[in-house]
Design a protein around this nucleic acid. Sequence first.
DNA 1: CGCGATTGAGTTGTGCACAATCGAATCGTG
DNA 2: CACGATTCGATTGTGCACAACTCAATCGCG
Lengths: 160, 160
Amino acid sequence: METLDTVPDEDFLRLDHQICFSLHAATRAFNGVYREALKELGLTYPQYLVMLVLWEHGELPVKGIGERLRLDSGTLSPLLKRLEAAGYVERRRSPEDERSVTVRPTGEGTALKEKARGVPRRIAAATGLPLEDIRDLRERLDALAVRLDAVDPDALSSCV
Amino acid sequence: METLDTVPDEDFLRLDHQICFSLHAATRAFNGVYREALKELGLTYPQYLVMLVLWEHGELPVKGIGERLRLDSGTLSPLLKRLEAAGYVERRRSPEDERSVTVRPTGEGTALKEKARGVPRRIAAATGLPLEDIRDLRERLDALAVRLDAVDPDALSSCV
DNA sequence: CGCGATTGAGTTGTGCACAATCGAATCGTG
DNA sequence: CACGATTCGATTGTGCACAACTCAATCGCG
């Protein structure tokens, strides 16, 4: 059987090139499709993700959004400012904990959900894949992300 | 059977959330792992991709790199300048066509290939997946990217 | 209660992705 | 040969990702 140990470095480098590159290419392709689909909503794809979690939860602290999307304040702070400037969300300091900032959709932001309703179906159609394939792919990617996030940094730099 | 047409919008939105988000999360997880693995080489992940194609082809015009990695000059120009500043590549105008810029690894850049040899194996090990699973995943992602790149932009904005 | 440690946002700086645009070189057709 | 169209790269501007840091608010232990 073909395993990690029976493949020469040279082939490996090629294979590796393709898996990481494939992921990159697929992500960028998705971004391109979303960019088109979200153009009429005036949202970028990461902004759309933020609105998705806000539509689902009603309101969340910045930290809560960051946990669900795995983004830190360095990414979210400016993004949320742009969403606020666009009139889709409002931010205010939590009365209970002055360190925390609560974000919630404005009326306009909530109304946007209706306009966004058709987006996911069109995206799924664009993939040309049956639902079960999409689901299977998603599960593999999730499992992969979990494994990669759990990797010990030192185990990487210190070669085997 | 469950198809695109038998699932309500509401569920769909959730499913969609997960597939696009999973891809995003997996890409970012990969980036994190590569960041660690490439730290000792002084390369970012996109810079590593560029070095990979240069190691394979010896020298290429900027356009050739862009075709292989699907990146445009707006991304490559500054990236190549940084690689040049790091001493890994040199750029010069092609004598045959003064519009074109030829990029090739310096001696130091070529030497880097040996130091990079162990990287892909460690990345593959970090995924915790057998080779055939990686290959299968790669093929699915490639097929997906092809489909998504071929999507007619008008078909997205004009709803079904 | 008081003070050091921790937590939550925000800021700064670097790098990538991409759209739009520019200028120079080259091509192609009349 | 001349001139409009195209090609190539660089540049500009916007937005995202992330590391490193700051600062205020809060927590918790003595």
